[in-house]
Design a protein around this nucleic acid. Structure first.
Length: 508
RNA sequence: GGUCCGUUCGUCUAGAUGGCCCAGGACGCUAGGUUUUCAUCCUAGAAAUCAGGGGUUCGAAUCCCCUACGGACUACCA
């Protein structure tokens, strides 16, 4: 059955969204856009205990920064509003009741304490306890209690949960778009809680009810959900919604760059790279976790990096704009195995995007930094400088390090260069060259170049004997872009001043 | 412990219907060239006995089986 593509990204607001979640959102988005479908943001906040203030706003803002847009959702509304599960609370109970009425679910009165007790007992015997077909007949629930006892407990407001009654003998089949056919036998599954004693549904119930009500066509989510997919399939069956059950696609996990295991929030600061799209401050502890935005990544680069972690176009093209990704994306080119994040490749991607910018565009990004440092400069000149150093940076924030000598006279000189290049007669040569530069009129890149080169030739010297030291007094270091361009940009006065200063300070 | 998923260079990966793969690309790395220097750029190179072992076949990274290893899940969390 062909139907309208409607996908959802459904995070729980328990903290900042990490890049694994961002990638899930991205794939949903690419798929929706390619199919001309609808992208929905639903907030799954059925666990009030884990709610973190600011997390929902964070999710919305960080995805907006990346250019992942929603057609419906908490922040934009839509025909299936509300899109926050806590706001949909009154809706879920009737579905749980329906399941009980149809024999697909039952009341369970066991207290968390008593279940903990049983779990510990099993553990002592090296067994694992499961609330399932084999154990439910020995527990306190509406399957073992009489109708009268159940009614009594209910009217007395005794706390209870509603559990799914997993069939005893049934092969449950999940046709995953990425993994193919996965079969799990029902007797191995437990009777999951669908409705909690606090009156809220669990993820499992709310998720299926909402996906159905919101007419979701494809569920694209992380692999960690694969084990509970059989339950979800059974729920669709129990509700009689099989005909409109969404297709499933379980994405491979994003792994820690070192060792093994799922990438976690802690890994970022431990390994020195961001795991969050934008910076996040924990409202409780005040602890700050770094973000891609604050680390200097372009949103386009982050999208490109994430798109390639678990998917590839099958061609050698690596640079993809969002539009190109929408064109090229396909679920059957998603890989099955987990991907480790590679910081070096991430930097490379950012560098590629940075090179796409012109000097003018870089200057605009650089100006705020200069203003903060109290430096004033015409935009035209700054654009030339930016263009000059463009190829030496990975990030916009590297600009200062690469250009500081344009704005500040050097105060230190690289010892290594002095040791290697500074000779007996260097000072004398530089002073003579300085005189020539001072007399130069008009002053410019080519003029300075010709003058210095002529001096070197006239005195039977070679370039290396002069250039490195001249650079040292001008820049303070042995590296950098074309020296005559630098000299021309800082101007005659500053250049000659620097030569005098350098000669004086280095010779002492 | 149980269930499920996975396994090609250090990393991301290419590899429809088995032969063009003694495995290709990218990042990183190494060397050389270019440059006054560094970066860029160019060229070259090292790097996977396709997890291991058995089959099937004239022929397997590609099909089948077993084993190992890794991971996810196993809450009144999502």
């Amino acid at each position: 059955m062909e139907r309208k593509v409607r996908v959802r990204f459904a995070p729980s607001p328990t903290g900042p969204l990490h890049i694994g979640g961002v990638r899930t959102a991205l794939y949903n988005y690419l798929f929706a856009r390619q199919m001309g479908g609808t992208m929905i943001l639903r907030i799954e906040d059925t666990d009030q205990g884990r709610f973190v203030p600011g997390a929902e706003e964070y999710i919305i803002e960080s995805l907006a920064w990346l250019g992942i847009e929603f057609d419906e959702g908490v922040h934009v509304g839509g025909p299936f509003a509300p899109y926050r599960q806590s706001d949909r609370k009154p809706l879920y109970r009737q579905y749980a009741d329906q399941l009980i009425a149809d024999g697909w679910a039952y009341y369970a009165f066991d207290t968390p304490e008593s279940l903990d007790q049983i779990r510990k007992q099993y553990e002592a015997e090296k067994k694992a306890f499961q609330y399932d077909v084999t154990s439910r007949n020995g527990l306190r629930n509406s399957l073992t209690l009489t109708k009268e006892e159940v009614n009594q407990l209910l009217t007395a407001n005794h706390p209870y949960v509603i559990r799914f009654k997993m069939p005893e003998d049934e092969d449950i089949v999940i046709n995953d778009l990425i993994r193919g056919r996965v079969v799990v036998h029902s007797k191995l599954l437990d009777d999951k809680v669908l409705f909690k004693s606090d009156g809220m549904p669990t993820y499992h119930l709310a998720n299926i009810v909402d996906d159905h009500l919101m007419e979701i066509s494809h569920v694209i989510r992380g692999e960690e959900w694969l084990p509970s997919a059989p339950l979800h399939v059974m729920l669709y069956k129990a509700f009689g919604w099989e005909a409109t059950m969404p297709e499933f696609a379980h994405l491979p996990l994003l792994l820690k760059p070192d060792g093994n295991g799922k990438l976690s929030k802690r890994d970022g600061d431990r390994l020195g790279f961001p795991v969050f799209p934008t910076q996040w401050q924990d409202p409780k502890t005040g602890e700050i976790s770094s973000g891609y935005r604050e680390s200097g990544y372009f949103p386009e680069a982050v999208i490109n990096i994430l798109a390639f972690l678990g998917w590839n176009p099958g061609t050698t093209q690596e640079m993809f704009s969002m539009e190109e990704l929408i064109q090229a994306f396909s679920i059957d080119r998603i890989s099955k195995s987990g991907a480790k994040f590679d910081l070096e490749k991430a930097k490379w991607f950012n560098q590629q995007y940075l090179r796409l910018l012109s000097g003018e565009e870089l200057a605009v990004l650089f100006i705020p930094v200069l203003i903060e440092k109290g430096i004033k400069i015409e935009t035209e000149k700054l654009a030339i400088i930016c263009d000059l150093v463009k190829e030496r940076l990975n990030f916009v924030k590297d600009l200062w390090e690469q250009t500081a000598f344009f704005f500040n006279t050097p105060t230190t000189y690289d010892e290594q260069v002095i040791k290697k290049r500074w000779k007996e007669d260097t000072a004398e040569h530089l002073q003579k060259i300085n005189l020539l530069l001072e007399a130069l009129h008009p002053f410019g890149t080519m003029a300075a170049h010709d003058k210095v080169v002529a001096y070197i030739q006239d005195n039977g010297l070679n370039m290396g004997q002069i250039m490195n030291c001249l650079r040292l007094v001008i820049v303070g270091a042995g590296t950098g872009p074309d020296l005559f361009t630098i000299i021309s940009l800082i101007g005659k006065e500053e250049a000659t001043k620097r030569i005098n200063k350098g000669v004086a300070e280095i010779n002492v």
